[in-house]
Amino acid sequence: MTAARVSSAVMTHPVRKAQAEELSARLGLGGLAMDPDPDGAPSALRTALVAWSAVSDTATHHLVVQDDVAAPPELLDLVAGSVARFADDALIFYTNWHARNGAAARLAALAGAGWVRAVPEEFAPTLAICLPVGTAEEFREFARDSTERHDDELMAAFLRKAGRAGLLAVPSVVEHIGTSSINGHASQGVRRAVCPVGATDARPLLCHGWVLEELDWLPYMRYGEGYLRLAGQERAADPRRHLRWQEAMPATGLTEGRVRDIARRERPAESAVEVGRLFGAAFAEELWIHCLLLGRQAEDAARRHAAHSAGTRARTGHVAERLRAAAVSTVGLAGLPPERRPDVLPAHTELLTAYAWSAIRCGSLLLGSDEGGDGGGA
C-alpha cells in the first residue's frame, strides 16, 4: 500500500494575506492560494480553484485550508493519519455547529462515533477539507466553468454526482475564527465548530473511532426552532426544505403527543423558567424537545452499531465522554438566532448545557414507544 503524502494550500485574499501567512507558517502548510481577482465580485470558488491546483508532484492527497481558522500544530499529522485510514474519501475536518451536518456530527458524538457521513443535500464544509489528488483534479474540471461562487455548495454538488458524500471528522480540531466573511456569510453571526476538542483527544477518535455511515431522521435547530431531516430527504423534490419537527413527526414512528408528554413530565421546571427568561419561553421549549429527540436518535444509533463498535471502545472510551461534553456544550448556542449568540455569557452556556443534558438523557424514553413498534430505525 502506498504511503499517504499530503500537500496543502491556504485559501486567502490580499486583505488577509498576513493572517494566512502566519497560519501557514505555524501549521507547516503549503503556499498561499491567492484570489486571482481580488477586486472582483466575492467568490470563494475562484480562490478554491487556485488552491486545488496547488498539488505537489509527489502528493497522494491535497488539503485545502481557509485563512480564517485556528488549528493545532499537529493538524497535518492528524490529516495524514486519517487519509491513511480513508484513502478514497473526501475528509472534512471542520463542521459548523448550526448546520444539518453539524447536527449529524453532534448526534454521532453522542453515539460514540469518530466519523459520520455528511448530509448529501447540504453544502460541504470546506474550511479544512482533504481530497485524493485524482478527486481534486476531477473537482477542478467539474468546477472550472461554473457560475457558482460558493465552493462549499459546488463541492457538495460534485460529491453528490459521485454518489458519495464526504466524511465529517466528529472531533473538531479546526475552529472558525471571527465573524467577518469575504463571501457574504457574516449574517450567520458567530460560527464555530460543533465538537471542539484538542488534538490529543481527537487522535484516537480519528484513528480508531467507528463510522456512522447511515443517518436515520436527524433533529436539528435553526434560528431558535427545531426541525427534522428525514431519511432519504436528498431524493425529495425540494431536498433542502426545512420540516418543523411537528410536521415531520409522523414519518418517524413517534407522535407529537408522546414527545410533549415526556417534556411535561421530565423537563426541569426551574431551568426551563431561567432559559425562558433569558432567551424566551418558545426557545426553551424548542431546545428541550430538540435535545430529547437528539438523545433518542443517538441512543438508537449507539445500540444499532454496538456490535461493530465494540472493538473500538477500548481505544476511544477514555476520550469519548469528553467529545460528548464538547458536542453538548455548543447545542444551545448554535440553536439560538445569530443575533442572540454574542450576548451569551459563560454562565448562560453552562445553564444551556445542563438543560440540554436533562433532555438528552431522557431520549431513551422514546425508544420502543414508536407506534409502528419497530423503534423507527433505519
Score class of each variant (00 low, 15 high):
A302S: 15
V319M: 05
P250I: 07
G257N: 10
A109V: 00
A272T: 04
R46N: 08
A51F: 03
V116Q: 10
D57H: 13
D77C: 06
A307G: 09
L76F: 09
P38T: 08
V133A: 12
L107K: 05
D35H: 02
R240C: 15
A113F: 12
A281E: 15
L323E: 10
C207P: 01
E148K: 00
D35L: 08
R240I: 10
V170H: 09
A25K: 11
A70Y: 03
A263S: 15
L107C: 04
R160W: 04
L336G: 00
R240V: 11
A104C: 09
L167M: 12
V194L: 01
L75M: 00
G377C: 11
G276W: 08
L294A: 12
M34I: 15
G184K: 04
G232E: 11
G224K: 09
M249R: 06
R5P: 00
R313V: 09
P73Q: 15
V211A: 14
S180C: 11
T95S: 12
D343V: 04
M34P: 01
L131Y: 06
G198C: 06
A9V: 06
A347K: 12
E321I: 13
G377Y: 14
Y227W: 06
L212M: 12
N101M: 00
D152H: 05
L230Q: 06
A298K: 06
G163E: 13
W52Q: 06
R191F: 04
S24F: 02
N183L: 06
P38K: 01
L78M: 07
A157G: 02
E74R: 07
A44K: 03
A99F: 12
A4Y: 01
L127K: 11
E122I: 03
G112L: 00
A128P: 13
E234K: 08
A90H: 07
T95E: 05
D343C: 06
A4M: 06
G376K: 09
